[in-house]
Design a protein around this nucleic acid. Structure first.
Length: 921
RNA sequence: GCCCAGGUGGCGGAACUGGUAGACGCGUUGGACUUAAAAUCCAAUGGCCAUACGAUGGCUGUGCGGGUUCAAGUCCCGCCCUGGGUACCA
C-alpha cells in the first residue's frame, strides 16, 4: 500500500480528538513545560502559508518535550477584539461579533488540518465576556494600586490614603505625576473630590490630561507603539498630537524593572536591544534655573551636566506650560503664532521637516545657576514636550542640534571641552576631552566631571542626579466599539471602579458602530449606559493590547470563574518556557504583557516576575511573485529572456497558474477576461515568467494557502517543508517548487516499512554495524538540532539517514522504529500510522524519543585531508589513535606527497588529530 | 544619522570553539525502467582553463579592499550593499 496521506491524516486527527490525546491537566508527578504561540488576530483573509510557520516550530518542540516525559501545555486562542472587524462593521453594519465568529471558525478549520497538538479544551478568545471579565478585573486592580519606589512594588491605594491621613505626602516616594506637598491636616480637610483628584496622580491605571496621538480617520487615540512615522500602524492614517483626558497605565513605574529583567531572559539579542532602546534609560542631572527678575524656577534634564558652563541659551517645547508663562508681552504675538503653527502640524509633517531650524525668542531670560549670567529663553519644536521636562539648557559647542539652532539665530557658542575643531563649524560631543572655562571642574575629563558637578549641584540645592526614560505611560483609552468596556463609572465627575461582583461589564448593543453626532465614542449610543444607581459609565473601550497582556495566564486555567488563574494552576505552570512569535510585537505586546505580569506579581497573583522565559522570533515568509511582460500598447506577452528586446510592462501573475516559473497559458487566458485573447512570444516553446521576492499579499497574487498544499501533499509534508525552508528566525521566500523534496522523503521513509507488494513488513534480524551507525548518528544530530531549534538541519539529517538505509535495503525493526519516533514530532500523522501498523495500541505521542549510544559512533580510522601550504591535495585514511611521528613518516613518504615536496624538506608539519594534516614547504 | 542583524552556486540553504567550502533539498542535463506518461532509480552539476579517452590535472572562488595565521566563510581594520529598529530623547 502506498503512502495515502489524506486517509492517514484524517484518521489520526479524528483519533487524537476522540481520545483527547492533547488534553492536559496539572500533574504534580511530571515536570511541566509551557509552549506558547502568539495567538492570532482572526482576519477575514484566513491563514496563508506564512502564519503557521511559528506554530509548526513550537508544535515540533512541544511534541519533542512531551516525548521526553514533560507535561506540556500547548494552547491556542484568538486575539479577537480589533480594528479590522470594526471597520468592516462600520462599512456594512454587520456586527463585529458575527464576522469575528466566522473568521475564528475558518481559522480553527485551517489550523485543525495541520495536525497541531493544541489542547483545544483551553481555547479562548479575548472578546468573550468570560475572558474579558479578567481583563477588567486587572484594570480595577491597577486603578486600586500605586507604585512605591522605595519598595519597588505596587501597593494598595488604601495604604496610601492611610499614609496621607497620618503624615501627608512629604515622605512618599512614588511613581507619580508632579504633586505639590500637603500635610495630613490638609489631606483630612479635603473634599472627597479633591482627594480623588490627588489619588489619580498615583494610581497605576489613571485618568489624566495627556498629550496623545489622535488619529482622526480611526476616530481614536493611539499608543506610541501603534504609531510609526507619524501615521497609524493599522491603516496608515495621519496622527496629530493633542491634549485629551484619557486613561493611561503607569508603565513608566516599571521602566527599570522592565530593563533589568531582560538580562535573565533567553531572548534574541536584537529583540532585547529593541526593548532597551524603547525604554531608553539615560542617566544625567536635573538642574534648576531661575527666571530673571522673578522667583519662578524651572528644571531641565541633561545627560551632560559637565557642559553646564557652556550653556548660552535655554529652549522650551512649544506645548510647554512654561512657554505661555514666560513669554513677555512684547513677544506674545510672535510666540503665539509660532506655537500655533508648531502644534497644529501633524506628527508626520514634523518628522519630514526636521532639517529646518525654527524658533522664537520669548523675551525672557534664565539665570545660570553658578555664574548668574542671563540666558535668553527660546521656544522651538526641536524640544519635545514628552521627554525630560520639556525644557533644555542649550550647549551649542557640544550638541549638534543646539549648534544648528545657535548658528541659525546667531547665538553665542562657548566651548568648555577641549579637543574639538573649530567650535563655530561643528559641535564636539566626545566625553574624553578636558574640561575648560568651567571653574571647579576644570582639568577633569568630561566623563570625570559629570559626578563632580552633580555633587556640587546637590550640595548647593541647584539640582540632582536623575535617570530619565524615553518610555511613556501607555494611553489606554480607545474611542471605539469593539474592545473591552472600562469597569468605571463617574460620580461627581470623578471615576470610580465597579464592584468586582458586577464583572464582566458586557459590551452593550448600539445602533451603529461609529461616533455620535457630537463626537462621543460609539458606546455613548448605548441605551442606559449607566450603573443601577444611574451613574454614567465610561464610554471609551480598552485597546488591543489589553486582552493580549495576560492571556498566557488564563490558558493555565481557562474556565475558572473565581479567578484569572487559580493559585494551584499558576504554581504548577508558572510561566511560559517557550514563546514563539513575530518580532513586530517587540515594543507593544511584549512590553505591555511584561508590565502586566510584573504588576500581578507585585500584588501576589502570579508567582513569576517574567512571563516569557525563552522567546524565538520566527522570520517572515515572503511571497515569491511571478511576472509576465506585456508589450506596451498590445495584448502580446513576451517570455522573460526575450523581454529586453521590447518595451514591456511587467505585470503580476497569479503564482498558482505558474509551475516552476513556466506559465500555464491556458489557465492564464481564463484567469482574467482581458487576457482571453492574449498572444505569446515563447522561448523553447514555453513562456518563462520573471520572479520577485515581495511580501505575501493578495494584491500581488503571490498568496499560498496552506489548505491547497495540504490537499496536494498532506499536512506532514507542509509541516516539514516549512521547517526545511531554512532557519526559523530568518525571513525567506516561499517557493512551492522545492516541496517535492520533502514529499519524496516521506514516501521513501514509508517505503522502508513496506515490501514490494506494499505489505507492512519489518524484520527482527539483528541490524548490522553500518545500520546502527546511521541510526545513532541521526539520533544524536536530531536531538542536538531540536534543542538548538535548527529544524532544517534536523530534517536534512533524517533525509541522509533514509537515503543511507534505503541503499542498504534496511527494514529492521530495531532501526526503523526508533527512527520513526525521531520523525514523529515533525510528521506526527505518518508517525502515528506506522506506529500503529507495527502493532502498538497507544499513541506514538507518548512514546519516548530514542537515545543514542556513543559506542555505535566510534570510528577506528579518520580520513585526513592532507594539505600543502594550506591547500588540500589528497586524502589519507589513518587510525584515530596514531601518533604524530608516525603520521609524519607516512605522509612525507607518500607517493602523492613527492610532487608537492619537490625534494625540499618541509618547514613545518602540522597535525591536528581527527581534523587535518598541513605541510608547509 | 544612530543601533542591531545579515551578504556563501541558477534557487532555499549547510559548515562545531579558525581545520576538506557548497551538506540536504530544488532546479538543470544525461541515462535506466515504460508502448507512452506519471512514479521510481542511477549519474553529473560553483566558475575558468588545459587534456589522449575514461574514474586526469591545474587555477580561481563565501559582498569589496587590506591584515593576522601553517590554515580565514569563520578573527582584526576600513568600506559597500540588503533587511529590521529608531528618529530632533537633550
Amino acid at each position: 500500500m502506498e503512502y495515502r496521506f489524506h486517509e492517514i491524516e484524517k484518521k489520526w486527527q479524528q483519533y487524537w480528538e476522540d481520545q483527547q490525546i492533547y488534553k492536559v491537566e496539572v500533574d504534580p508527578d511530571k515536570p511541566k513545560y509551557y509552549v506558547l504561540d502568539m495567538f492570532p488576530y482572526p482576519s477575514g483573509a484566513g491563514l496563508h502559508v506564512g502564519h503557521p510557520l511559528g506554530y509548526i516550530a513550537s508544535d515540533i518542540f512541544a511534541r519533542y518535550k512531551r516525548m521526553e516525559g514533560y507535561n506540556v501545555l500547548h494552547p491556542m486562542g484568538y486575539d479577537a477584539f480589533g480594528l479590522p472587524a470594526e471597520q468592516y462593521a462600520i462599512q456594512t453594519g454587520q456586527h463585529p461579533a458575527t464576522t469575528t465568529d466566522e473568521n475564528i471558525r475558518r481559522y480553527r478549520a485551517q489550523l485543525s488540518q495541520i495536525g497541531f497538538s493544541f489542547d483545544w479544551n483551553r481555547e479562548l478568545r479575548t472578546c468573550d465576556p468570560k475572558y474579558y471579565k479578567w481583563t477588567q478585573w486587572a484594570f480595577i486592580e491597577m486603578f486600586e494600586h500605586w507604585y512605591d519606589n522605595k519598595r519597588d512594588q505596587a501597593r494598595p491605594i488604601q495604604e496610601l490614603k492611610d499614609i496621607f491621613a497620618r503624615e501627608g505626602n512629604a515622605h512618599i516616594d512614588a511613581a507619580s505625576d508632579e504633586v505639590s506637598l500637603f500635610s495630613a491636616e490638609q489631606w483630612n480637610n479635603m473634599s472627597e473630590k479633591q482627594q480623588q483628584q490627588i489619588l489619580q496622580n498615583y494610581r497605576i491605571a489613571y485618568l489624566a490630561d495627556s498629550m496623545v496621538n489622535w488619529c482622526e480617520a480611526l476616530g481614536t487615540v493611539l499608543a506610541n507603539d501603534e504609531v510609526k512615522d507619524g501615521v497609524s500602524v493599522r491603516g496608515g492614517h495621519p496622527v496629530v498630537q493633542k491634549t485629551m483626558k484619557q486613561w493611561s497605565l503607569r508603565v513608566t513605574a516599571y521602566a527599570d524593572r522592565l530593563l533589568e529583567g531582560l538580562e535573565q531572559l533567553e531572548w534574541s539579542e536584537s529583540l532585547k536591544e529593541i526593548q532597551r532602546n524603547w525604554i531608553g534609560r539615560s542617566r544625567g542631572a536635573e538642574i534648576r534655573f531661575q527666571v530673571q527678575g522673578s522667583s519662578q524656577t524651572f528644571d531641565v534634564f541633561t545627560t551632560r551636566p559637565d557642559t553646564l558652563f557652556g550653556v548660552t541659551f535655554m529652549v522650551l517645547a512649544p506645548e510647554s506650560e512654561l512657554t505661555r508663562q514666560l513669554t513677555t508681552s512684547e513677544h506674545q504675538d510672535r510666540v503665539e503664532a509660532y506655537v500655533g503653527k508648531a502644534t497644529s502640524r501633524s506628527e508626520r509633517e514634523r518628522i519630514t521637516d526636521t532639517q529646518r531650524v525654527s524658533g522664537e525668542f520669548t523675551g525672557n531670560y534664565a539665570l545660570h545657576p553658578f555664574t548668574g549670567e542671563p540666558l535668553p529663553i527660546w521656544v522651538s519644536d526641536y524640544v519635545l514636550i514628552g521627554y525630560g521636562t520639556g525644557a533644555i539648557m542649550a550647549v551649542p559647542a557640544h550638541d549638534e542640534r543646539d549648534h544648528e539652532f545657535a548658528r541659525h539665530f546667531d547665538l553665542p557658542i562657548r566651548p568648555v571641552i577641549e579637543g574639538g575643531g573649530d567650535p563655530m563649524e561643528k559641535a564636539y560631543d566626545s566625553l574624553d576631552g578636558k574640561v575648560i572655562n568651567s571653574r571647579f571642574i576644570n582639568g577633569y575629563t568630561a566623563r570625570e566631571a559629570i559626578p563632580e558637578i552633580i555633587k556640587e549641584l546637590e550640595k548647593q540645592g541647584l539640582g540632582k542626579e536623575k535617570v530619565n526614560y524615553r518610555l511613556r505611560d501607555a494611553i489606554f483609552s480607545r474611542q471605539r466599539y469593539w474592545g473591552e468596556p472600562f469597569p468605571i463609572y463617574f460620580k461627581n465627575g470623578m471615576p470610580y471602579p465597579l464592584d468586582k461582583s458586577k464583572l464582566p461589564l458586557e459590551l452593550p448593543e448600539v445602533d451603529a458602530f461609529k461616533p455620535t453626532q457630537d463626537g462621543r465614542p460609539p458606546l455613548a449610543r448605548a441605551k442606559n449606559w449607566q450603573t443601577e444607581e444611574g451613574y454614567p459609565l465610561e464610554e471609551s473601550t480598552m485597546p488591543g493590547f489589553a486582552g493580549s497582556s495576560a492571556y498566557y495566564l488564563r490558558f493555565m486555567d481557562p474556565h475558572n470563574n473565581q479567578a484569572l488563574v487559580s493559585e494551584q494552576a499558576n504554581q504548577y505552570w508558572r510561566n511560559v518556557d517557550l514563546y514563539v512569535g513575530g518580532i513586530e510585537h517587540a515594543t507593544g505586546h511584549l512590553i505591555y504583557s511584561r508590565f502586566w505580569n510584573k504588576f500581578l506579581y507585585d500584588i501576589g497573583w502570579v508567582c513569576e516576575d517574567e512571563p516569557f522565559k525563552k522567546l524565538i522570533n520566527q522570520g517572515m515568509i515572503q511571497g515569491r511573485s511571478n511576472f509576465v511582460y506585456r508589450i506596451k500598447g498590445t495584448n502580446q506577452f513576451v517570455s522573460y529572456n526575450l523581454k529586453d528586446d521590447y518595451d514591456v510592462t511587467p505585470l503580476h501573475v497569479d503564482v498558482n497558474i505558474v509551475d516552476n516559473d513556466v506559465l500555464d497559458i491556458e489557465a492564464f487566458r481564463k484567469w482574467i477576461p482581458e487576457y482571453q485573447d492574449a498572444e505569446f512570444i515563447l522561448e523553447d516553446g514555453k513562456y518563462i515568467c520573471g520572479v520577485g521576492i515581495e511580501k505575501m499579499s493578495k494584491s500581488l497574487y503571490n498568496v499560498i494557502n496552506p489548505d491547497d498544499i495540504i490537499q496536494k501533499y498532506g499536512a506532514d509534508t507542509l509541516r516539514m517543508y516549512e521547517m526545511f525552508l531554512g532557519p526559523i528566525d530568518m525571513s525567506k521566500p516561499w517557493d512551492t517548487n522545492g516541496i517535492d523534496g520533502v514529499y519524496k522523503f516521506l514516501r521513501k521513509f514509508w517505503r522502508l516499512f513496506h515490501d514490494r507488494q506494499g505489505q507492512f513488513t519489518l524484520s527482527d534480524d539483528e541490524p548490522g554495524e553500518d545500520e546502527m551507525k546511521t541510526l545513532h548518528k541521526t539520533i544524536k544530530k536530531v536531538r542536538e538540532d531540536l534543542e538548538a531549534f535548527s529544524f532544517n538541519t534536523a530534517i536534512s539529517a533524517m533525509m541522509i539517514a533514509v537515503n543511507e538505509l534505503s541503499s542498504m535495503g534496511c527494514n529492521r525493526r530495531q532501526i526503523l522504529m526508533p527512527l520513526l519516533r525521531l520523525l514523529t514530532p515533525f510528521a506526527p500523522h505518518i508517525g502515528e500510522e506506522l506506529w500503529h501498523r507495527d502493532g502498538n495500541q497507544t499513541s506514538v505521542v507518548d512514546a519516548p524519543l530514542p537515545d543514542y549510544q556513543e559506542k555505535y559512533l566510534q570510528e577506528e580510522t579518520f580520513t585526513y585531508p592532507v594539505a600543502f601550504n594550506g591547500k588540500m591535495r589528497f586524502k589519507l585514511e589513518l587510525p584515530v589513535d596514531i601518533t604524530e611521528e608516525k603520521v609524519r613518516e607516512i605522509v612525507l613518504n607518500h607517493e602523492k606527497a613527492q610532487k608537492w615536496l619537490n625534494d625540499k624538506t618541509p618547514k613545518k608539519f602540522i597535525f591536528v588529530p581527527n581534523k587535518i594534516i598541513n605541510v608547509v614547504v
